[in-house]
């Protein structure tokens, strides 16, 4: 189904989500919106890793650019919501283009370290210029859901619809891009950049392009994240966010889009699981504070040690081996 009629499959999945969103309670709807946003952000990292074999530790910074761009355009120019999201994508893509120009010349752990430095550095700009609203940040209000959807249509459900629709469109589009000429070029560059160059691929331009697109998608995720919490502030895009996104990407498997849900659901589920454990066994506050970090980091270490390509790729490799035999 997914192989032969991807568009139909995506639409059916969307319908399923729509039906589901009417059945579950508010908290689950909100978590659903968060999962959708993480899916977008993780997909942007996977795209980036798809060309360089490197993981960005600073995608939180690109999310922040998107969030601030959306909030600024809405607050100052009164841009409609869809335009604010477009501006978020463009602004983050521009930032990503500049970063990509530098990053195209970076390899190995240099890219990881440089993006890490960006993630630490960028939020401080918000405190420097008053237009960004300092520590408090800016309001970002997309308004109530349209009246035509009915009176009992909640705000969270509206967020979920927007985020889920965006996630579906982005994943569908990325899937096509990955299978297009550009996707093949990126895979060639990732495999062996010298060989790719000899085959006539402009390595530098492809790297910058991948970085730009990845940043644009991250910007959209940032704007959506700002939407669900109604504000943008430096505190909303901490280093921990960048790290969790990198974690999510690794758990999903950085070489394929197929597992993108795994990382996103894990990121949302772990705090939830810890909450239920804590409330059931009435453990101390220390455990509640540190158990999520412990679980995530243990999972991360085990993943890179035993399934470095991610669970989906691992299963496919096993399947292929069995098919050969």
């Amino acid at each position: 189904m997914l192989k032969k009629h991807p568009l139909t499959a995506f639409i059916l999945f969307g319908l399923l989500l729509f039906l589901l969103s009417n059945r579950v309670d508010e908290l689950r709807v909100f978590q659903g919106a968060t999962v959708a946003i993480y899916v977008i952000a993780i997909a942007s990292i996977i795209l980036l890793t798809g060309y360089s074999g490197q993981v960005s530790l600073g995608h939180g910074a690109l999310l922040a650019i998107g969030g601030y761009a959306a909030a600024l355009s809405r607050n100052h120019w009164g841009a409609p919501v869809w335009l604010a999201f477009c501006i978020a994508v463009l602004a983050a893509a521009m930032g990503g283009y500049l970063l990509g120009l530098a990053a195209a010349r970076l390899s190995g752990p240099y890219l990881a370290g440089t993006t890490l430095a960006l993630a630490i550095g960028l939020p401080s700009i918000a405190n420097q210029f008053s237009i960004f609203g300092g520590e408090q940040g800016l309001l970002f209000d997309i308004g109530a859901p349209p009246a035509s959807l009915g009176a009992d249509f909640t705000q969270y459900k509206w967020y979920f619809w927007i985020a889920a629709l965006a996630a579906l469109i982005i994943i569908y589009w990325l899937r096509n891009v990955m299978n297009s000429r550009y996707g093949r070029n990126w895979k060639a560059v990732r495999g062996n950049d010298v060989a790719a160059e000899l085959a006539g691929i402009n390595v530098g331009r492809n790297k910058v392009l991948a970085f730009t697109i990845s940043a644009g998608i991250a910007g959209l995720a940032g704007a959506l994240l700002a939407m669900t919490i109604s504000t943008v502030s430096p505190g909303a895009f901490p280093l921990a966010l960048s790290f969790s996104l990198a974690t999510g990407a690794v758990l999903s498997g950085v070489t394929t889009l197929g597992g993108v849900m795994i990382g996103a659901v894990t990121l949302v589920a772990i705090p939830e699981i810890v909450d239920s454990v804590v409330s059931r066994y009435e453990t101390s506050e220390t455990v509640a504070n540190n158990l999520p970090g412990l679980l995530v980091s243990t999972l991360l270490i085990l993943t890179v040690l035993f399934v470095p390509n991610g669970p989906v790729e691992q299963m496919r490799a096993r399947h292929e081996r069995r098919a050969k035999r």
């Binding site: 890793t49 360089s52 074999g53 490197q54 993981v55 530790l57 390899s107 190995g108 752990p109 990881a112 990732r190 495999g191 790290f243 990198a246 974690t247 690794v250 950085v254 070489t255 220390t286 455990v287 504070n289 540190n290 158990l291 970090g293 412990l294 995530v296 980091s297 243990t298 991360l300 270490i301 993943t303 890179v304 040690l305 470095p308 390509n309």
Partner: peptide, 24 residues
């Protein structure tokens, strides 16, 4: 293709692990 990111992610995981342990 993931050979480059494995050590980065492993040390990142270690960072989180140490932090959580200190918290405990």
């Amino acid at each position: 293709p993931v050979a480059g990111i494995v050590p980065i992610i492993a040390t990142l995981g270690l960072l989180g692990f140490i932090r959580a342990m200190i918290g405990f």
